[in-house]
C-alpha cells in the first residue's frame, strides 16, 4: 500500500504504458509511423484519471509534429470519419472519450477518409 501511494504522482513507474496506432492514412500525420509506444500520466491536467479525451490532447500536443491538427482533431474531439478502437473494440462500446486508460491498452485510430 505504501508503495502505491509513493508511486502515485510523478515517479516514472506510475506512468501508464500504452500502444497507440495510426492507420488508414493517419500515420502520415504522426511521422509516418504506425505504432507508437508511449507512456501517459495517470492523471490529467485537472487531476482526474487519464482518459481517451486526455490522450487525444496529449497526442496533439506531444506526439504530432505535423501542423495540420485539424486533420486529426476538430472541436476538441477526433475528426468525424476517424474510427477509434480500444483494444480492438469500437470506442462506442467503451464509453468513447471517458474510457480510462489502463496499462497495456491498445488504442487504434483509423481514418476512413482516404480514397478507395
Amino acid at each position: 500500500m505504501v508503495e502505491s501511494v509513493v508511486a502515485d504522482g510523478t515517479a516514472e513507474g506510475s506512468q501508464i504504458p500504452i500502444t497507440v496506432e495510426f492507420t488508414g492514412g493517419l500515420e502520415m500525420l504522426f511521422s509516418d509511423q504506425r505504432k507508437h509506444q508511449i507512456s501517459v500520466s495517470p492523471r490529467d491536467e485537472n487531476g482526474n484519471a487519464a482518459n481517451v479525451a486526455f490522450l487525444i490532447r496529449y497526442l496533439c500536443e506531444e506526439v504530432m509534429k505535423d501542423q495540420r491538427k485539424d486533420l486529426f482533431v476538430l472541436e476538441e474531439t477526433v475528426r468525424p470519419g476517424i474510427l477509434v478502437l480500444i483494444n480492438d473494440a469500437d470506442w462506442e462500446l467503451e464509453g468513447e472519450e471517458t474510457y480510462e486508460l489502463k496499462k497495456g491498452d491498445n488504442i487504434l485510430f483509423v481514418s476512413t477518409l482516404h480514397g478507395g
Binding site: T23, G24, L83, T112
Partner: peptide, 24 residues
C-alpha cells in the same frame, strides 16, 4: 457503410493502401 468497410479490412487484416491522391 464506409465504417464497416474499414472495420472489415481491419478485422480481416486485409492488405490495403491509404494515401490521398497528391493532386486532388
Amino acid at each position: 457503410y464506409e465504417k464497416e468497410i474499414v472495420l472489415y479490412a481491419h478485422h480481416k487484416k486485409l492488405d490495403y493502401f491509404s494515401t490521398e491522391c497528391i493532386y486532388s
